[in-house]
């Protein structure tokens, strides 16, 4: 690794455990700038924990996290990281906020304390809403939308601060099957056209693998990490062995 090369994310030998339960063991991997990385693994494999560690929401017992070459503890440019959490699916749907208001939240960290949104910000909010194809719903309450539409709004909220890295934790949970492909296509376009680095966490490798450029497989330990072409090869050679007794989760055929 040359000194100039700074991946969007670098995780070195990270381990995390709750009192008596190991969740992550010696994880080391990188997300190259400009890639669309799919992080897959069965339920309970530690995917969300890993994400929370790299966002600084949880503190791992050992190991290092670097964001754009900077150690996590020194990292300050949080507006470069967009995050759509799993919880976005279970927020208070009766919350009285319009699509515009929800998306505007994505700028608050950047705008800063005691300051107000200006015209440039407002234009940005509208653009982000247009990017995810929700312009017609700008002034609707978030609770009136379908699950798929809400998820697009949360992506717009993550995009509005012009992040370099967008992290999505199980974004299609609760989204109807018909909308899922369109949703992934939208992510693929963001990656290709805007050069946005994406980290998509999912337990469903079937649909995901048609869209991503890189794959990492996690089940406490990292079992695979590479680009999609390698992944296809490995999976044909009996990739499911790595998952041991969790094989059933991976029985999607390509």
């Amino acid at each position: 690794m040359s000194k100039q090369y700074k991946p969007a994310v670098r995780i070195e030998d990270l381990s995390f455990h709750y009192q008596d339960r190991n969740v992550l063991e010696h994880i080391t991997f990188e997300i190259p700038v400009g890639s669309f990385m799919g992080l897959v693994g069965p339920n309970g494999s530690g995917k969300s924990t890993l994400i929370r560690c790299l966002l600084g929401l949880l503190k791992p017992q050992s190991g290092n996290v670097y964001l754009f070459g900077q150690p996590l503890s020194l990292f300050k440019n949080w507006d470069e990281i967009g995050y759509v959490s799993q919880k976005a699916n279970s927020f208070n749907t009766a919350f009285p906020a319009t699509v515009y208001e929800v998306v505007s939240m994505g700028l608050f960290g950047k705008v800063g304390l005691f300051r107000f949104l200006n015209k440039v910000h407002k234009r940005k909010i509208e653009q982000a809403i247009e990017t995810v194809g929700m312009a017609d719903y700008m002034n609707r309450n978030i609770g009136e939308l379908s699950g798929g539409q809400q998820q697009r709004v949360f992506i717009a909220r993550a995009l509005v601060s012009d992040p370099k890295l967008l992290i999505l934790d199980e974004p299609t949970v609760g989204v109807d099957a018909a909308s899922v492909a369109g949703f992934y296509q939208m992510l693929k376009n963001l990656n290709r056209e805007k050069g946005l680095t994406l980290l998509l966490v999912t337990h469903d490798i079937g649909v995901m693998s048609d869209f991503v450029t890189h794959v990492a497989c996690l089940n406490k330990q990292l079992h695979f990490h590479g680009n999609t072409a390698e992944f296809e090869k490995v999976s044909k050679e009996g990739f499911s062995q790595m998952y041991g007794h969790h094989v059933h989760v991976l029985e999607h055929q390509h």
């Binding site: 300050k76 949080w78 995050y83 959490s85 919350f95 939240m105 950047k110």
Partner: peptide, 12 residues
């Protein structure tokens, strides 16, 4: 009020 986790991620 909307989402404490989002607030934490955006540095609030």
């Amino acid at each position: 009020s909307f989402d404490e986790e989002q607030a934490a991620v955006s540095g609030i």
